[in-house]
Design a protein around this nucleic acid. Sequence first.
DNA 1: GGCATAAAATACCAACCAGTAACAAAATGA
DNA 2: TCATTTTGTTACTGGTTGGTATTTTATGCC
Lengths: 186, 186
Amino acid sequence: MNAEKVLDVAMTAYWQSDPADVSVNAICQLAGISKPSLYREFGSEDGLSRAVLDRYAEQVLSELFLILHRGTGLRGTLDALIDFASDDPRMETGCLFYKMRAGKHRLGQETLARVEEIDATGQAAYVAFLKAARDAGEWADGLSVEAGAKYLGEQIALAITQRASGEDPGRIREMLTLALSVFTRR
Amino acid sequence: MNAEKVLDVAMTAYWQSDPADVSVNAICQLAGISKPSLYREFGSEDGLSRAVLDRYAEQVLSELFLILHRGTGLRGTLDALIDFASDDPRMETGCLFYKMRAGKHRLGQETLARVEEIDATGQAAYVAFLKAARDAGEWADGLSVEAGAKYLGEQIALAITQRASGEDPGRIREMLTLALSVFTRR
DNA sequence: GGCATAAAATACCAACCAGTAACAAAATGA
DNA sequence: TCATTTTGTTACTGGTTGGTATTTTATGCC
């Protein structure tokens, strides 16, 4: 029955539209398998979406973390983030993680817990990045590192979410650049 | 049967949780009326949510437009917007309009059309506000007025949406202030 | 071949959805 | 006082949801 293929199909479907708008039935149909097969493999809808999220995290979100840990300085990293959010073709229909986070209340407990875990990991990565920048003397705003990290994360999320709603990428880049310019002004 | 009361009940329910998560059945039960009564009055679920949105626009969104048209200068208006988005108790569970806009694809055609109309009106109001500020010499960024208006609107929407997800209002104010500081730096 | 075992699919469940047909009660008008 | 129209209710339709009990099919194994 090939669990990997099912995960791929489900990830694509969830990602392309929205987890809340794709039923278990639809996924079975798309993957060409029967419902009991799916339930034997993943236990429940929650189990499936959790597995999908795991896969998404290691296949896609890892790239975002990579940018943050690359250590190319404040400006270099911010530019890479802007490029990723506003032009990377993989984000053309938005980010599955952000879609899940936006519809938190509709998720099962397993998936919800994983979303919050990933969210915390992301926040920590942003914090580490900003701390390094501050220690290097590249950034010295009055803002706390935690607030700056949250701000940065939310601006990225906003930009990618706008990608999903068909906004012009040039416009998105313009707005994100503006939003992140608060980190580099002196 | 009192259509006003039904609209109030529906508006509160949609607003408190999310339009997509409140069924017609639930509204009938909350309002203490039967389903056929509701359908005779509003025609369809789309008709109801459209009527609710109309009511919301004139009761709540009007206040936002009022702030924008008050003409208290760039700084004064931005401060008023920040106050409204991050501390007004009415926005504690988010904004019904933004919730509808975020779930566009789930709306009926009438409601969708109204959402887009309101969106355009809002954009126009932000544009007028920024134009006035620029003419008064209070703002002279390299940004186009349209891009600035979109940016401003999205930042307000982001802040209010974060209110709905239980984020700390102080933190929200901090982030929104930071985001809007791009308009007042020299 | 014959048979146990595991994997799959068919067909079903109860709960909910938006929407309506049929009917009873009450208000209105002549 | 009686016909008409409006208002509201009960009870239903057809469809979809997540989840399963049951039956069929395929796979070893002897």
